[in-house]
Design a binder for these strands. Structure first.
Lengths: 101, 101
DNA sequence: TTAAATATATCGTATAACCGATATATATAA
DNA sequence: TTATATATATCGGTTATACGATATATTTAA
C-alpha cells in the first residue's frame, strides 16, 4: 500500500493493506489472527513475507497502534487509521459500485 | 491481470482487468467509453499505457471479442470472459465481505 | 535446561500494474 | 489534399505487491 492512502488510497495495486485496515476496524487483532482471517476470505494463507511488511507499512503510515503482550503484538487502528479507512472505503465502494449483488 | 484469472483471479495486484471485465458485462464498449467509465468511478483517467495493455491481456486470455468499426473497436465479453467474471466476482465478494455498507 | 513451537520480522528477488511518451491508423475539417 | 482530432497500441522505466527463505524473540514442552 502506498503511504499516500489518504489521497489516492485505491490505486488498486494490491488490496492487502486495505483489507488489513478493514479487518482491524472490526476488532483489534494480532498478526496471526489477521493471517487467519485473510486465509478464510482468500482461501490461501498470505506468507509472512507478505503480511508483515504490509503491517509495517500501515504502522509507519501512522494507521496502527501496537500493544505487545509476550510474543504477540495486538494491532489497533489509530484515529488516523480509522479516517484513512473511511476515505478508502468510500472510494472502494464508488469504484466497485454494482459489483456486490 | 494474470492469465490464470480463472483459478486465482483475485491476487489483487491491481484490479483494472477485473473492473474492465465488470464494466463490459454491463454493456459492450470501446476503449474510450471504458476510459470514461473508469474516470467517473476512480476520479482519474487511466493512461492509455495502462488501459490498452490491460485490454490486450484480457483479449489474449480469451475473455474479449472485438468488432472494429472504423477507428473504434467495440469490446464484448466472450462466454469464457463471462465465466471468468463470475468466478472473480464470487471471490471478490468473499474477500471484501462487509466492506460495502 | 534443552528442544520445539509460535509470533514477528527482514532480505533478495520476481512479477505485473502503471505511467509518460510516442507511434500508428482512421476519420473529419479546412 | 492537407491538417487536425480521435482511437488504439507499444515501449521503456518505475514502483509496490508478493513470495520463499531465513532470522529473531518468546513461550511451552520434554
Amino acid at each position: 500500500m502506498n503511504i499516500k492512502m489518504d489521497e489516492e488510497c485505491c490505486d488498486m495495486r494490491g488490496m492487502l493493506g486495505f483489507l488489513i485496515l478493514f479487518l482491524l476496524s472490526k476488532k483489534p487483532m494480532h498478526g496471526q489472527e489477521i493471517s487467519e482471517e485473510i486465509t478464510k476470505r482468500k482461501g490461501e494463507r498470505p506468507s509472512p513475507g507478505t503480511l508483515y511488511p504490509s503491517i509495517k507499512n500501515l504502522r509507519e503510515a501512522g494507521f496502527l497502534d501496537e500493544k505487545k503482550e509476550g510474543k504477540t503484538i495486538t494491532y489497533t487502528l489509530t484515529p488516523s487509521g480509522k479516517k484513512a479507512l473511511t476515505i478508502a472505503k468510500r472510494k472502494f465502494c464508488q469504484i466497485f459500485l454494482g459489483v456486490f449483488p
